[in-house]
Simulated assay, not measured.
Amino acid sequence: MLEENFNIESAVIFFRIKSKIKKDWKKICNEKNISLTRLIIDSVENRLMDDERRKVLEFIEKQDNIFVKIETNVNQLAKVVNGQKFISESQLELFSKQLSEIASLKARQNKIFENIYALLSK
């Protein structure tokens, strides 16, 4: 057994619930692609469900991809400006504002990620 391989002590708990409730819980588990045991334990311990954890990780990956695209665009603009050896003052001002906004968004994103990681570690 997996539990024996990790020297984890486990206990069995029996409790009674109505068949309808069990059926409803099983339906929830099927929808979330988690086990009934995980549903109960995570609910009691007020932890993120495995399906929610997967969604959070997907969100983080999407956010990272967005910033990779932005960084690529910045690099492309820098290449054009370096090739022309010129950028108008209005373009430079707009570009600087956009870079500041990106830096601000990245800082906010990092703070959100810190909070998410704290939730995931529970």
Rank of each mutant, 00 (worst) to 15 (best):
residue 2 L to S: 15
residue 3 E to F: 11
residue 4 E to P: 06
residue 4 E to R: 09
residue 4 E to C: 10
residue 6 F to I: 15
residue 7 N to Y: 04
residue 8 I to W: 09
residue 8 I to D: 08
residue 9 E to Y: 05
residue 9 E to N: 11
residue 10 S to Y: 15
residue 10 S to F: 12
residue 12 V to I: 10
residue 13 I to F: 08
residue 15 F to Q: 02
residue 16 R to D: 07
residue 17 I to L: 09
residue 18 K to T: 07
residue 18 K to W: 09
residue 18 K to C: 08
residue 19 S to A: 08
residue 19 S to E: 15
residue 20 K to F: 11
residue 20 K to V: 11
residue 21 I to R: 10
residue 22 K to Q: 14
residue 22 K to H: 14
residue 22 K to L: 15
residue 24 D to V: 05
residue 25 W to I: 08
residue 26 K to S: 15
residue 26 K to A: 13
residue 27 K to E: 11
residue 27 K to Q: 09
residue 28 I to E: 04
residue 29 C to G: 00
residue 30 N to W: 03
residue 30 N to K: 15
residue 31 E to Y: 02
residue 31 E to I: 04
residue 32 K to E: 08
residue 32 K to N: 11
residue 33 N to Y: 03
residue 34 I to S: 01
residue 35 S to K: 01
residue 35 S to P: 04
residue 36 L to C: 07
residue 37 T to C: 07
residue 37 T to H: 06
residue 38 R to P: 01
residue 38 R to D: 13
residue 39 L to M: 07
residue 39 L to A: 03
residue 39 L to D: 02
residue 40 I to W: 06
residue 42 D to Y: 11
residue 42 D to Q: 06
residue 42 D to K: 05
residue 43 S to W: 02
residue 46 N to S: 13
residue 46 N to T: 13
residue 46 N to E: 14
residue 47 R to W: 00
residue 49 M to T: 06
residue 51 D to H: 07
residue 51 D to V: 03
residue 51 D to C: 12
residue 52 E to T: 05
residue 53 R to V: 09
residue 55 K to A: 14
residue 56 V to Y: 06
residue 56 V to M: 14
residue 57 L to A: 04
residue 57 L to V: 08
residue 57 L to H: 02
residue 58 E to M: 05
residue 59 F to H: 05
residue 60 I to H: 03
residue 60 I to E: 10
residue 60 I to G: 01
residue 60 I to A: 05
residue 60 I to K: 03
residue 61 E to S: 12
residue 61 E to V: 03
residue 61 E to D: 09
residue 62 K to Y: 06
residue 62 K to A: 13
residue 62 K to I: 11
residue 64 D to G: 01
residue 64 D to R: 07
residue 65 N to I: 03
residue 65 N to V: 02
residue 65 N to W: 01
residue 66 I to D: 14
residue 67 F to N: 01
residue 69 K to Q: 12
residue 69 K to I: 12
residue 70 I to W: 00
residue 70 I to R: 00
residue 72 T to P: 01
residue 73 N to D: 15
residue 73 N to V: 06
residue 75 N to I: 02
residue 76 Q to A: 07
residue 77 L to A: 10
residue 78 A to I: 15
residue 81 V to R: 00
residue 83 G to W: 04
residue 83 G to P: 01
residue 85 K to Q: 14
residue 86 F to L: 07
residue 87 I to Q: 12
residue 88 S to G: 08
residue 88 S to K: 13
residue 89 E to A: 13
residue 90 S to N: 12
residue 91 Q to Y: 12
residue 91 Q to V: 14
residue 92 L to W: 10
residue 92 L to M: 14
residue 92 L to Q: 08
residue 96 S to T: 13
residue 96 S to V: 01
residue 97 K to P: 00
residue 98 Q to C: 05
residue 99 L to C: 12
residue 99 L to E: 08
residue 101 E to Q: 14
residue 101 E to H: 12
residue 103 A to M: 12
residue 104 S to G: 11
residue 104 S to W: 10
residue 104 S to M: 08
residue 106 K to A: 04
residue 107 A to K: 11
residue 107 A to I: 02
residue 107 A to W: 00
residue 110 N to P: 02
residue 110 N to C: 12
residue 112 I to P: 00
residue 113 F to Q: 13
residue 113 F to H: 07
residue 114 E to A: 13
residue 115 N to K: 05
residue 115 N to F: 03
residue 117 Y to F: 10
residue 117 Y to V: 03
residue 119 L to F: 06
residue 120 L to V: 07
residue 120 L to F: 01
residue 121 S to P: 00
